[in-house]
Design a protein around this nucleic acid. Structure first.
Lengths: 307, 307
DNA sequence: GTGAAAGCGCTAACAT
DNA sequence: ATGTTAGCGCTTTCAC
């Protein structure tokens, strides 16, 4: 540095006076780096996504990355459009909670393949797409589900059912596997209810439960694979007069509406943070592929009251 | 067009083959337009913000604008940082739900002034900052509050209290004004409880209500200025054994946890849409200032059961 | 150690 | 009607 302190000062003052700001667009063009990370969620509204987002923000803002968020609203085409849009915006990296189709539903992930093709670093969150998006940060859904079922059993359940959406999604598969393992280990009977639609009105949850109730075959407890679904279960069981059926669910009640279900908490915020950290190093190192990273979940054993 | 169809076709095919994509960064540098709109929220988690966001998305995506979202988490400094960050990213326009300080709290909005200074089109949503950010799309909080109180009175309340945060925010001021007007018109007594902290644990809501209860001075009903607060009220009244006190609140219960409060619905999604539409025309016309636009709110008169 | 120049990918204005 | 060029604001390289 041979520029006199005086000159430096003068320049700085002038810059400040005229409100000089380096143009990030020009920087981006020159450096081929936009310092922008794209984020794709199925829905920002779900508390789960919210926490993930918070984790991402806390990690990425200090690292001077901007976020470009878009929502697919559980629609494959919208997700594809959003991803392409983000890629066209030349984001440096992509964080994505991939949309999950129902089992057997037509589903393309050309847009995910395109991410890889275009050599854009990407990290999947909460679930992964085998062979396409393996770099991922996920929760230990297997163990969490297993512990949830164990808690139900410890609470006195002699039979435990499973209720979930029939989605082609790795995290749900793991949960179901955890459920089955717990059941086999305890040598108990089960009852699996898989919903083939997201629509709360349609679907046969109510009729299936009604039949179980009528037949006197209602399990003592259920593991419910997602939070929203747990409230449907809760209401239906209440309506059927099955007040003794216990529920364990993935997700948490708001403090002002405790249902008494066993709650399996997952490290949502940490999921976001870890994914964000990964994407940073991937961008820095020019790496576009990576391993799966599994974070362990918590399960609340202090609230085993059933519904 | 004198280019032969054959040539056009060849060029297009070649472009597709080599995966040619026009660089939006270069386009931005050249055209001085990033086709990006910045969005600043206090918190994405609140259903209110979520709906607004959805409205913004449905309007802005088809118009080929990208969104750059950031969250201030009810922190003035974070908001300022986010806004500056967005401005530095050369967003074409800014949509902002301004952070609201508690009355008397030190508060700067240099960053909002800076938006105006830098001639960036901006629209405030749900509330406005008089003299600084007047271009805004807000709900008719005055009438909504008034109707809410009227519904309580129609439900048999001979006295109606008001509970809200003591925030310096135009929408809350309007709600309080609506409450007062309804009260004066009906020539009824009231009781105002203004909370000076966001923290649920602290604050004197519980003690104030307990005193009213002990003195036998509990109003027959309350207008609660925000959704989160309504659940605190609900729980406290329940704990105090004040089961007959009716509540009207801004916000909605989730379908699986109906509390029976009178719910004042606001046109959140439309708020977002209108603001998005405004920002589009402002960008197109190079306009950076505008009027306030007031959308009327709905109030649910079909659920007047009290708590 | 400092200053000049080239060029990132595009588009608008300009010659042909 | 088509082809060429300058330049958006920055950074990196290369002379000095």
């Amino acid at each position: 540095m041979r520029i006199s302190a005086k000159t430096q000062d003068r320049i700085h003052r002038l810059a400040a006076e005229r409100h000089y700001r380096p143009s990030s667009v020009a920087q981006a063009l020159r450096s081929q780096r936009t310092r922008t990370v794209g984020v794709v969620f199925p829905d920002v509204q779900e508390t789960f996504m919210n926490r993930v987002l918070k984790g991402i923000e806390t990690e990425l803002h200090p690292a001077d990355y901007r976020l470009m968020i878009s929502t697919s609203y559980f629609n494959g085409e919208t997700e594809a459009k959003n991803v392409r849009n983000l890629l066209d915006h030349e984001v440096d990296g992509l964080l994505i909670v991939p949309y999950a189709p129902f089992r057997g539903e037509a589903h393309v992930f050309d847009h995910l393949a395109e991410i890889v093709e275009r050599d854009v670093p990407a990290v999947a969150i909460d679930r992964y797409v085998p062979g396409v998006l393996d770099a991922a940060v996920v929760a230990d859904d297997f163990t969490a589900a297993r512990r949830g079922v164990e808690a139900l059993i410890a609470g006195g359940c002699g039979s435990v059912g499973y209720v979930g959406f029939d989605l082609e999604i790795t995290s749900l598969a793991e949960r179901y596997r955890g459920y089955q393992t717990a059941l086999e280990t305890a040598e108990l009977d089960g009852e699996t209810i898989l919903l083939t639609e997201r629509n709360p009105a349609a679907g046969d949850l109510h009729s299936r439960l009604a039949r179980l109730s009528a037949d006197g075959a209602m399990p003592d407890g259920f593991l419910v694979s997602s939070n929203g679904l747990s409230y449907r279960m809760w209401r239906i069981l209440d309506a059927l007069g099955e007040k003794r059926t216990k529920l364990a669910k993935f997700g948490e009640d708001p403090h002002w509406a405790e249902t008494g279900m066993i709650q399996i908490r997952q490290p949502h915020e940490e999921l976001g943070q870890r994914a964000a950290r990964r994407i940073c190093t991937m961008i820095a190192d020019g790496i576009t592929t990576g391993e799966r990273e599994v974070l362990s979940a918590e399960w609340a054993s202090d609230k085993e009251d059933g519904i």
